[in-house]
């Protein structure tokens, strides 16, 4: 048993090392993007009418005259201490900007992925077990729509029907203007912050704003997850061990869920992880249509204003989210698949 514990410790150490190296790689990429783009960070500070002396002094102050390697390590140091520089378009620290916009995207993406998983997985299983039935056809058509309908169009139609037409949901933005800034920011997730503050009105209002864009994201993720689940399940149902279960007289529901679905949870984790990561990247189209102050919106604005610090900061956050979700999938893999445990 001591041997197994030591083995586990070595495995954990290696896992941590790989994670750290991946993160360093991400930092290197964002750093070099910052150097390669044809935007002079000195000019954006001193303005293009500055004299050569002022320009050189600013360049020295910003450390840009030092060797690249030294610059890279000071960049890493800054990032680790939470300093991502100033944003020229908002005039605030990029870190505090990101702390404000990322939760907005996180809140929407999380509700979206929940919808995608809770509906998409059962739909995929049903489609596979009743291959060729009307339910299967319907689910396949939904999957096709999820592929082919543009997000912004669905967003506009959704707003026209459910907000302007039926009045079932609130319009663009995270809360009504009236409620803006009435709840202390704790997590940055309005649903949770308003619950903590006990402000049920604000909770209901935020939910009413969130439900439509999150459902649209959920629809895209559902279409993808259902399609993948269906094809994994069709593959599983043709396996010999599923026949073995039937030979044993196991009831059909248990055959489907315990024998066919159980093994594909492992593959589904990757699919769900990827889908969640792509939602967290911030669906620019949906965020623009719904005036959602999320990271997709922030990144686009920053790009259009050549606001490099903000672009790099947002890229770093999105990259970290990808690394994190991949690592979580890895860990779940090891827990769920007996073949990967060695």
């Amino acid at each position: 048993m001591a041997g197994r514990a030591a083995h586990g410790a070595v495995g954990l150490a290696r896992f941590m090392l790989v994670t750290i190296l991946t993160f360093l790689g991400l930092l290197a990429i964002t750093f070099f993007i910052g150097r390669v783009v044809p935007i002079d960070p000195v000019l954006s500070v001193v303005g293009d009418r500055a004299t050569q002396e002022v320009y050189d002094a600013a360049r020295e102050r910003m450390g840009l005259d030092r060797p690249l390697v030294v610059q890279f390590f000071s960049y890493v140091g800054n990032v680790l201490s939470g300093d991502l520089g100033q944003s020229i378009s908002t005039g605030r620290a990029v870190t505090s900007d990101l702390a404000r916009v990322f939760p907005a995207t996180l809140e929407m993406a999380t509700i979206g992925i929940l919808i995608g998983v809770l509906l998409g997985v059962p739909m995929g299983v049903i489609a596979a077990t009743r291959q060729g039935s009307w339910a299967d056809q319907l689910i396949r058509v939904l999957g096709l729509l999820g592929y082919s309908v543009p997000a912004f169009w669905l967003g506009l139609v959704g707003l026209a029907v459910f907000y302007a037409g039926l009045g079932w949901v609130a319009g663009p933005g995270r809360v009504d203007f009236f409620y803006e800034g009435m709840v202390d920011t704790i997590t940055g997730l309005y649903l949770i912050d308003s619950l903590i503050a006990g402000e049920m009105d604000i909770f209901r209002n935020a939910l009413s704003h969130l439900v439509l864009p999150a459902s649209i994201l959920g629809f895209f993720s559902l279409a993808y997850i259902a399609r993948m689940t269906r094809s994994f399940m069709l593959d599983q149902l043709a396996q010999e061990y599923v026949t073995t279960a039937r030979v044993k007289g196991v009831p059909e529901r248990r055959v489907v869920w315990r024998h066919a679905f159980f093994p594909i949870r492992i593959q589904l984790i990757t699919v769900i992880g990827l889908s969640y990561a792509s939602l967290l990247e911030g669906s620019v189209m949906i965020e623009v249509v719904f005036s959602w102050p999320g990271i997709g919106n922030y990144l686009t604005t920053a790009l259009l204003n050549a606001d490099m610090n903000a672009v790099l900061g947002a890229t770093l956050v999105i990259g970290s989210v990808f690394i994190l979700i991949n690592k979580i999938s890895d860990v779940l893999y090891r827990i769920l698949d007996p073949r990967a445990r060695q």
């Binding site: 396996q239 073995t244 030979v247 044993k248 007289g249 196991v250 009831p251 492992i266 007996p338 073949r339």
Partner: peptide
């Protein structure tokens, strides 16, 4: 289903594929 397994059973060809891996 009440008969399968309980009264008539079948041994399949290759245990690599006929046993559930998880």
């Amino acid at each position: 289903r009440e008969i399968r397994g309980a009264r008539i059973s079948m041994i399949m060809q290759d245990p690599k594929f006929s046993l559930n891996p998880v």
